[in-house]
Structure formats: structure tokens, C-alpha cells
């Protein structure tokens, strides 16, 4: 592989990390510099293409789906409204009667197991991704982005768009989930090789998974200090309802 080949790959697949490509880049300063410039340009491209998604679009679609049968039959709007009220009341009664929720920890643990690659520090743009992810879950990161962040993406937790982050701790990678509008405190369930902590985060929840010996409280404090929610859950749901009937 020569410099020309490397540059062609950089331009057609900037995130390509094939061993042959990396080997050349490590040994060629010109190509190193070229790749750095390409990756910087790629960041700008990503930011430019990251148009704002209409607020609550996902919920609006899920809401539409809940009233549409697989046969594509759609209900008149008044029936949909009536059904919403009935479902909400029924759900409220059930939740009140049951008085407990399914444990969130096994769900998060399964999620981590399904995608172990996220533990590797492969994202060069984790801080920028964090900004996007926070925006998409209705929150924001205030202040400097964490230097130890290596991964940030949007993930569904309990059907809710949540932040799936990885930061480097003292003992290795620590996975952090930020779940808006969900009180998952006192939900525990994984006690083997990893430490787990689930706490309130200004009305949402934060769950941290780290290796034994890791001081999760320090990392949690970092998030408690910098994360805030732009909208309350009630406000978001109201916005979705309005979007549905606009």
C-alpha cells in the first residue's frame, strides 16, 4: 500500500481502520498529517449533516403505530383519542396496583453484552457525539466535555431514547447510561464481576457499570454536576400529544 492508496481510502472511507492502512499511516508522517486533516474535515461534514430532528418525532411515530393494526387499518381520530385515555387509565391502575417496575439493570447488562465493541476507545469524536446524544435525549451537558469519554451513542432503554456512554475509569472502562424521565433507583441485579450503581439524576436516572475496585461515586459526581434536562417528561409528552393532533 502506497501513499496514493492511503489517500484514496481516506477519501472514500475516512473511518477505515484496516491494519494495512494503519501500518502505513504510523510509518508515514505525510499520510498521518493528511489523515488528520481528512478526519477534521469529516467532523465538519458530520456536524453539517446532523440536522435537527423534529422534537418528539419518535414518540409521535410510536404513538401512531400503537393505533394502527398490522392490516394497515387506521382508526378515526376520535376513537384514537378515546383509546389513548382508556389505555392511559388502565396503565395507571396496573402500575399503581403492582407498585413495582421490572428491574432495569439486567436490561442494561444485556444491552452491553450485545455490543461489547463499544468498550474499545474507537470514537475519536466522542465529545461531539455526546453533545448530539444529549440533545436527542432532551438533555444537555453543561461545561467542559469529559476528557475520559471514549464512546457516546443513543440507545433505547425501556423504549426511551437514552445515552449510552463509556468513560475510562481507574480500573478500566465504565459504562454509563443516562435515562431521561425514569426513576430507576433501588433497582439492582448484577452482582458478579462488575459493580453497578443506579441513582437519580435530576429527575432521570443514571446507571454505571464498572470493574471491581472502581470508584463509581467519582464518575457519578462528574455526571451529576454537568448533566441537566431541558424538558420535564410531562412537557415532552405534552409536546408529543400536540404534535400528534396538530
Amino acid at each position: 500500500m502506497n501513499c496514493l492508496d492511503v489517500r484514496r481510502i481516506c477519501l472514500t472511507e475516512p473511518t477505515n481502520r484496516s491494519p494495512r492502512l494503519l501500518m502505513h499511516i504510523y510509518s508515514c508522517k505525510c499520510c498521518q498529517q493528511y489523515r488528520r486533516r481528512i478526519l477534521e474535515a469529516e467532523e465538519k461534514l458530520k456536524t453539517a449533516m446532523d440536522v435537527t430532528v423534529p422534537e418528539g418525532l419518535d414518540r409521535k411515530i410510536a404513538f401512531e403505530g400503537s393505533f394502527e393494526k398490522p392490516s394497515a387499518h387506521s382508526w378515526p381520530r376520535w376513537q384514537a383519542m378515546a383509546a389513548t385515555v382508556m389505555v392511559s387509565v388502565a396503565l395507571g391502575v396496573i402500575l399503581h396496583a403492582v407498585g413495582s417496575k421490572p428491574n432495569v439493570v439486567p436490561e442494561l447488562a444485556r444491552h452491553m453484552m450485545e455490543d461489547p465493541l463499544h468498550m474499545l476507545p474507537t470514537q475519536t469524536d466522542a465529545a461531539q457525539r455526546l453533545a448530539m446524544v444529549m440533545r436527542d435525549i432532551g438533555g444537555q451537558w453543561q461545561g467542559e466535555y469529559p476528557e475520559n469519554l471514549t464512546h457516546a451513542r443513543l440507545c433505547p432503554v425501556r423504549g426511551r431514547a437514552s445515552a449510552h456512554l463509556v468513560v475510562q475509569g481507574e480500573r478500566g472502562p465504565v459504562t454509563v447510561f443516562l435515562i431521561p424521565g425514569t426513576d430507576a433507583r433501588n433497582e439492582n441485579g448484577l452482582k458478579q464481576a462488575q459493580l453497578v450503581a443506579v441513582s437519580d439524576l435530576h429527575g432521570g436516572s443514571i446507571a454505571l457499570f464498572g470493574y471491581e475496585g472502581e470508584n463509581l461515586a467519582v464518575i457519578e459526581a462528574q455526571f451529576q454536576q454537568h448533566v441537566s434536562w431541558k424538558q420535564s417528561l410531562a412537557a415532552r409528552q405534552e409536546a408529543i400529544q400536540l404534535a400528534r393532533y396538530r
Binding site: 449533516m49 446532523d50 440536522v51 430532528v53 423534529p54 418525532l57 419518535d58 411515530i61 410510536a62 403505530g65 400503537s66 436527542d136 443513543l154 440507545c155 433505547p156 423504549g159 426511551r160 431514547a161
Partner: peptide
Amino acid sequence: KQKRFELMVGALTDDLYRYAYW
């Protein structure tokens, strides 16, 4: 089925919207 649908919507709506937009 509905749960799967909602998970899918939550995970993919934003990227699909951006793709559709472009």
C-alpha cells in the same frame, strides 16, 4: 411486537430522519 417496534423507533428515527432529509 409493539415493544420491539417502539425500541426500533427509539433507536432509528433520528438517523432515518437525517438520511431522509438529505
